[in-house]
Design a protein around this nucleic acid. Structure first.
Lengths: 333, 333
DNA sequence: TTGAAAGCGCTAACAC
DNA sequence: GTGTTAGCGCTTTCAA
């Protein structure tokens, strides 16, 4: 059993509320007794019990981070931003990996709510679960939504302009005279997929071009997803002039599929991605992509969360932070 | 304020301990009342308070995961293993990113202890902090140490045989007639660095070769670290025949440095890494490397933790799980 | 400055 | 099967 403030109080011949005051730096104890108590606590190897403290204070100094795929380098970057900023603000973070699974995501939400987190930062798997959280959480929990245009009453959302991002990418490709572009992305229903597809179409429109439906391919949002989708596309005989992938990891799979067939990038097929994950800039890859300020987004998320917590406005807010995407042109286009 | 079991009890005209029994599936309530209570709980949008429960049960169903660098793809893979297995076992995980910083690591340990985690899984920044945790944690906290040969009383360690891994890699390079090998790794004091260096020397010995000290270069354990270290080595004029990098991320930096100078891999310089992160197998990279079962290691860590928890042996244990490394030969050697 | 008392939301032991 | 009581470790009134 671990040491409690009562144990310390006994040893110091003082009441335990005084020990509490001394340890948490509150006024109401003389400097003398405070020092004495601090010393005894140290000697006894006292570890405060944050659970008990949270229970009475009704705040846990803990936040939940729900991301869909920690293996996609995009998310660790966000996670690091979250973690760094949380650490600065003395918050602990629960890591939840939803695996793009709706049900699992909901389970995590329940868990986090039970653990009485002070707020939730979520990169949602679908639009549906968002209102679900808001409902379950009641009105007193800050929710920060990452990476998508989710306008939900009672939350702050942070994302780049996905439509614009895809559009400038497509315009760049068409400018360079690539034609017959393909879009390889995830299932409809995910905000980023829908928005980027919208930008894909918008970019074409600027050139007076139509998008053909066969050139829009659904895939898992992973390396293998991109690899498989690209192979299917090529098997079908429809060789595109360029491919816009919904994210960089998919783009990597696309590149792998193209190269495995002995085709050259960008001579035979150009490729562009989304996110600008670290490996995109590697020699040997050199992927053209739309950069997102991932680390900063993670930091912002915690900062916004803190702001809500301080102001205690929680659910009355409905703020959308839209960041500017930046096209990074490299050798694959 | 949120709904409590007392609120439910009131509404159901029953005592609140009965509500507790009903909700946690314990015997002592009739099926009838249980159903009734479950229904009311649902209606009132009841969220159990895990903090209160943890306080009385003296267990939090929460574990801490301390890793040094979530941006290195090696660690997300481990984290995913941990997270998946934790999720299966109804455990939540606190993510802590130590950034290879001793002090920060110690802060996290204190935080986790305060939050009364049921156990800690740590990839330590140095050998020193290990005994520190054991001391602070007292005798009743399971500690699982990842990625290094840390024999510490009262813990389970899980790692591949780093010495052997480096040795088979060096033997492979020497077999292929590469000579004048360089080792680029982190600071001494980190178990994996020391052990891999030992294997580096051992491999040479098998060929009756000596290692020259100028060929052992210290670097940050990152892409930039590898990039900088390799450039320094080349600037010095000492062009190695091959480079063994302490990990794949460093190897990527090394590759970048070599290619930026217009040198060819493996014709001019061969490169081998450690870990087998996903991008190592990308066309355009094709890195020869020593594979670690990262995901499995993460899962094992939780499983071992659970086992300690169930047996309540905690600190009396001293178990070392040494896994077999596997050399994956690709085009960089 | 200090102590006494209450209570955060829950579980567990015991009595009925 | 159900209610009563106590208590987990802490903070926070309120008196002294």
């Amino acid at each position: 059993m671990s040491v409690t403030i009562k144990d310390i109080a006994e040893k110091a011949n003082i009441s335990y509320p005084s020990v509490s005051r001394a340890l948490s730096g509150k006024p109401g104890v003389s400097e003398e007794t405070r020092k004495k108590i601090l010393k005894i606590a140290e000697e006894m190897n006292y570890q405060p019990n944050a659970l008990a403290r949270s229970l009475v204070q009704n705040k846990s100094s803990t936040i939940g981070l729900i991301i869909p795929d920690i293996l996609n380098p995009y998310f660790p970057e966000i996670a690091k931003g979250v973690e760094d900023e949380a650490h600065i603000n003395e918050l602990s973070v629960f890591l939840c990996n939803s695996d793009w699974d709706d049900t699992r995501e909901r389970k995590y939400i329940d868990k986090l709510l039970a653990k009485r987190v002070d707020g939730i930062i979520i990169f949602p798997t679908s639009k549906r679960n968002i209102s679900e959280i808001r409902r379950k959480a009641g009105s007193d929990l800050p929710i920060i939504i990452l990476g998508g245009s989710y306008a939900e009453e009672g939350s702050v959302s942070i994302a780049i302009d996905d439509v614009l991002g895809a559009e400038i990418s497509v315009v760049h490709l068409l400018d360079k005279d690539y034609r017959n572009l393909a879009f390889i992305g995830g299932k409809s229903g995910l905000s980023s997929v829908d928005d980027r597809l919208e930008g894909f179409v918008a970019g074409h429109k600027k050139f007076g071009l139509e998008v053909s439906l066969e050139m829009i391919v659904e895939s898992e949002l992973t390396f293998n997803g991109g690899y498989t989708a690209m192979n299917e596309l090529l098997d079908r005989g429809g060789q595109p002039g360029a491919v816009l992938a919904e994210n960089d990891v998919i783009a990597m799979g696309v590149i792998q599929a193209i190269r495995t067939r002995g085709l050259k990038i960008p001579e035979d097929i150009a490729v562009a991605g989304f996110d600008d994950i670290p490996m995109a800039s590697m020699t040997g890859i050199d992927l053209t992509t739309v950069r997102q300020p991932k680390y900063e987004m993670g930091k912002m998320a915690v900062l916004e969360l803190k702001a809500l917590l301080d102001k205690e406005i929680y659910s009355k807010v409905n703020k959308r932070l839209v960041l500017k995407p930046e096209l990074i042109i490299r050798k694959t286009s």
